[in-house]
Amino acid sequence: MIEIINLHKSFGKKHVLRGVNLKVERGESMVVIGGSGSGKSVLIKHIIGILKPDEGKVLIDGIDIATLKENELYEVRKKFGMLFQMSALFDSLSVWENVGFALMRHKKMNEKEVRPLAIEKLKLVGLVGVEDLMPSELSGGMKKRVGLARAIAHEPEILLYDEPTTGIDPILADAINELIIEMKQHLSVTSIAITHDMNSAYKIADRIAMLYEGSIIETGTPDEIKNTQNPVVKQFITGSASGPIKIEGVHYERTLNRT
């Protein structure tokens, strides 16, 4: 179980997270929605301990990860797999070496043992015959799949998705959504995805939480979110430019154009 309690984080004068509270049950698929620059990525980086909170706690199975020593934190991280927005494949390693990275490092397996396992994971995400290519030879959609294969290779308990459908066409995006659902069904993992793609959110989420101005303003099932009365959430899910959500920089530009 993942529990985030009163999480605060600032970068310089910018107070990005202002008391985030969120609970994700084991086996649940949680999607955090929010606008660009709302702190979604900052939130997900706290969950895996890349960033440390200024205030508040992140509990993974009851353990406050900010209090862990470096080697203990790395042990906890073995429970995680993460798919990055731009896939973040290691471009000096081939596709199968990327997928088998964690196995080779942590399970003390050699190349001969890891390669077939990596190929198997690649098959699981629908890729065949790409194992010896380099990441630079892959298309964006393929990179996402390889990224996903890498994230699931060491059989993690928790999967984190950072904008899984951003930057790819709608059909590929749907294929990725299907994969995420499959991962959940086959591997029975807990997952947290952050996105601003509502189609994806409705499809993959058990519950959706909206992050706005540094805190979670609403949590609910996809149906509850669709029928929300909260004007901020309503504006966001319908994708309307007018409403209570201020668009960063736009007011300033408009004022500037008038003068």
């Binding site: 980086k45 895996i48 301990g49 890349i50 470096e70 790395y74 042990e75 991280r77 073995k78 995680f80 797999g81 993460m82 990055f84 973040a88 494949l89 290691f90 990275f101 964690a102 490092r105 942590h106 890498r150 060491h154 984190l160």
Partner: peptide, 9 residues
């Protein structure tokens, strides 16, 4: 960051 998430310093 990906290295960190794969428990590699």
């Amino acid at each position: 960051d990906a290295l960190e998430t794969l428990a590699t310093n």
